[in-house]
Write a protein that binds this DNA or RNA. Structure first.
Length: 544
RNA sequence: GCGGGUGUAGCUUAGUGGUAAAGCUCCAGCCUUCCAAGCUGGCUAUGAGGGUUCGAUUCCCUUCACCCGCUCCA
């Protein structure tokens, strides 16, 4: 990006998300969904330019995956086939995949401090990560046995500070009397640490039963509330609970449930991939940050089926391929990282996962996920084999005695997030030009590849422009703009990131030459009118 | 889901319990011009609903959307 270095904008000048959102609306990239009705939280519409941009990114992904997949380690191109599965599948698919039961985290709210705690991590958190929990535990362990005096002492000193809302702190005598009753009542089975903590959170045992304390402040937690992220709908006109179905939470499951169909119909052999681009839906608890977390979004997912012994090799292979791809659409530099998931962050079925993350203006200096590359083992195929009762084993064509469930490497990218990253990356402040900024799109994703601008509306210039336009539009998305002064038109093209402007002037009719105006440098050069198309062809792949 | 903030035209900002103002953008025309030029004209707004009031953009309530911080993001 050498041209970036001589503009006035420093490379890491923080970009203002508000300006990017405003530009997107003003120029027709992205609008709030249902805008004239006041919008709807978590949904966005793509305008004319946003649609072009998104389609370009999608097509480049499809090309890199399906039409022209990379060369594998053995020197031959790998094989990936495409799929476009239904958004709604048999609800059993989502039971098998674990989304119906597990695509949610049971949360418990604390009435004292207002924080949520994951119900399934509560005791682990209390015993290991809670300030007051570990402090109390330490006191007890030093004594080697449970002693209400020690707890009382703790409650009146450290506990006051660390767990102000804990029952034993607020009301020590009553609370401890219940615990003493319990310890003395059943000397043969002393209470566990968990039960002790519950007692310390309980002042009114008879009316409330044992309470669970908040790891932060000690107040008794409220019951579980689960957020299931799957969006529901009802099939048929009667809309009873029996007709309940789900909008897909990811495109991947459509691939897994078609795995057998594709193996049986497409002459593919392991290792091979199945790719799909499409909408997915999640009831995000809190949609935020423009199109970054929305309830309807688009994914580009590829499931790579391989022998378990080769999975690690393919994992590394796809990591590298994905890095190259993001770079190829102009998302690169220091603002993209590959981050390995720590063991406690991994979902249970994944052996390893890397996130491709981009430094969005709203995450900076941190990063936000663009793509997850996950080693999913044979989890999904196993689940679907079990739930559907259909054998999904792959039979080695060379050795019919070898049968196995392939393992899966999944590079799953967010198309919607990719669009956002490209928009953020392209947004370049430049006080030295009339528009004050320009969109530095890689030409291969730019919504409009070139604008054709007659300098004036007279002298036959519009006619020449029209002719050029009719020719170029056969192959490229181009814009013909005749009205208004040339400066305004250049400024408009800068704002929508058009890499080239071809300007027809008085010389054109005499010597058949036009001006090429470069977006990033604003420099101009003169080329022959009949060379415009080949000029575009040569320069659209360049990004410097 | 919680707390805080914001909401007047496409954008930036005025203003008022009594006909809502301007600049830029945009559109049309003139000019014929290589970086938002000039002249003339034009379109477009009080987020939504309810209440108080003779009358509400203004006061009150509710709601929606957006922003920030938590929370969440199998």
């Amino acid at each position: 990006m050498s041209q970036n270095t001589n503009t006035a904008a420093p490379k890491h000048m923080p970009k203002d998300m508000k300006e990017i959102v405003a530009l997107c609306k003003r120029r027709g990239f992205i609008f709030p969904a249902s805008d004239i009705y006041g919008g709807i939280n978590g949904f966005w519409d793509f305008g004319p330019l946003g649609t072009e941009l998104k389609n370009n990114i999608r097509d480049l992904w499809w090309k890199a995956m399906v039409k022209c997949p990379p060369i594998g380690p053995d020197g031959n191109p790998v094989r990936i086939v495409g799929l476009d599965s239904a958004i709604i599948q048999n609800p059993k698919v989502w039971v098998a995949s674990g989304h119906v039961g597990g695509f949610s985290d049971p949360m418990r709210k604390c009435p004292g401090c207002g924080k949520f705690t994951r119900a399934d991590h509560l005791w682990d958190t209390l015993l290991n990560d809670s300030e007051w929990g570990t402090s109390l535990l330490q006191e007890i362990q030093e004594q080697g046995k449970i002693n209400t005096d020690i707890i009382l002492k703790w409650a009146k000193s450290k506990g006051k500070k660390l767990a102000p809302n804990l029952a034993v702190v607020k009301n020590p005598e009553v609370t401890l009397s219940w615990l003493a009753t319990r310890i003395n009542g059943q000397p043969e089975s002393p209470p566990s640490m968990i039960e002790i903590l519950q007692h310390l959170a309980t002042a009114q045992l008879n009316s409330t039963g044992l309470q669970d304390p908040c790891p932060r402040c000690g107040a008794p937690l409220e019951g579980e509330s689960t957020f299931n992220l799957l969006m529901k709908t009802y099939l048929g006109v009667s809309a009873s609970e029996d007709d309940k179905a789900y909008l897909r939470g990811e495109t991947a499951q459509g691939i897994f449930v078609n795995y057998k169909n594709i193996v049986d119909s497409s002459r593919v052999r392991v290792p091979f991939g199945i790719a799909q681009v499409g909408k997915a839906f999640r009831n995000e608890v809190n949609p935020r940050n423009f199109i970054f977390r929305s309830r309807e979004f688009e994914q580009m997912e590829m499931e790579w089926f391989c022998h378990p012994d080769e999975a690690d090799m393919w994992f590394d292979f796809w990591m590298e391929e994905r890095r190259k791809w993001w770079l190829s659409i102009g998302v690169g530099s220091d603002d993209i990282i590959f981050r390995k998931h720590e063991a406690d962050e991994l979902v249970f079925y994944s052996k390893k996962t890397f996130d491709v993350e981009y430094r969005f203006p709203f995450t900076a200096p941190g990063f936000g996920e663009l793509e997850g590359i996950a080693y999913r083992t044979d989890y999904d195929l196993t689940q679907h084999q079990t739930h559907s009762g259909t054998k999904l084993e792959y039979m080695d064509p060379m050795d019919n005695t070898k049968r196995y469930l392939p393992h899966v490497i999944e590079p799953a990218a967010g198309l919607t997030r990719g669009v956002l990253a490209v928009l953020c990356e392209a947004f370049t402040v430049d006080p030295n030009r009339p528009s004050g900024m320009y969109m530095n799109f890689h030409p291969n994703v730019a919504p409009i590849k070139a604008a054709i601008l007659p300098l004036t509306e007279k002298d036959g210039q519009p006619e020449i422009a029209q002719k050029l336009y009719m020719d170029l539009r056969q192959d490229y998305m181009v814009d013909l703009d005749i009205k208004q002064n040339i400066g305004k038109r250049y400024a408009r093209q800068d704002e929508i990131g058009t890499p080239f402007c071809f300007t027809i002037d008085t010389e054109t009719s005499s010597d058949n030459s036009v001006t090429v105006r470069h977006r990033n440098t604003m420099k101009q050069e003169r080329i022959a009118l009949d060379k415009v198309k080949s000029y575009l062809q040569e320069n659209l792949s360049k990004f410097d």
